[in-house]
């Protein structure tokens, strides 16, 4: 089975998350700028006089498609890199993926997800 991970994280943690994912062999991903809010509701900004509330905050959404057996390790990696411990660290959604097709070669399924040096070819660190 193939899964898609949507991780909505703080903008300022993106570089750490990217680096950590690279280390465990997550090669392909895309990133979208999103706005929204969860439990924390919003932030306070400073105007000409005093402050005002903004309820839609900028976040980035990291999209990764990968094999079932790699999901847990990837999720753990994202969590530890994106966590600040403060409210607003983000959320991760996981979906099943029907099919994957690489446009250049026409490969399908697992073959379309394979890269050289990716998570399936690297040895598990410390394991």
């Amino acid at each position: 089975m193939t899964k898609k991970i949507e991780a909505i994280i703080r903008e300022e943690t993106l570089n750490d998350v990217k680096d950590a994912l690279k280390k465990i062999g997550i090669v392909g991903m895309n990133v979208i700028d999103v706005r929204g809010h969860g439990r924390q509701g919003g932030i306070t900004l400073v105007g000409r006089t005093g402050t005002y509330q903004v309820d839609m905050l900028p976040r980035v959404q990291v999209n990764i498609v990968l094999s079932d057996n790699n999901v847990e390790r990837t999720v753990n990696t994202i969590c530890s890199a994106a966590k600040t411990g403060n409210i607003g660290d983000g959320i991760i959604f996981i979906y099943p993926v029907e099919e994957v097709i690489r446009i250049r070669t026409g490969e399908r399924g697992h073959a379309a997800l394979m890269y050289e040096g990716d998570i399936d070819t690297l040895p598990v660190a410390g394991g």
Binding site: T44, V46, G47, R48, T49, G50, T51
Partner: peptide
Amino acid sequence: FLSWRDSKPSVLGIVT
């Protein structure tokens, strides 16, 4: 200074 006393030294405030 007024802006700082209320919260932070806003750039929009300084130029205003």
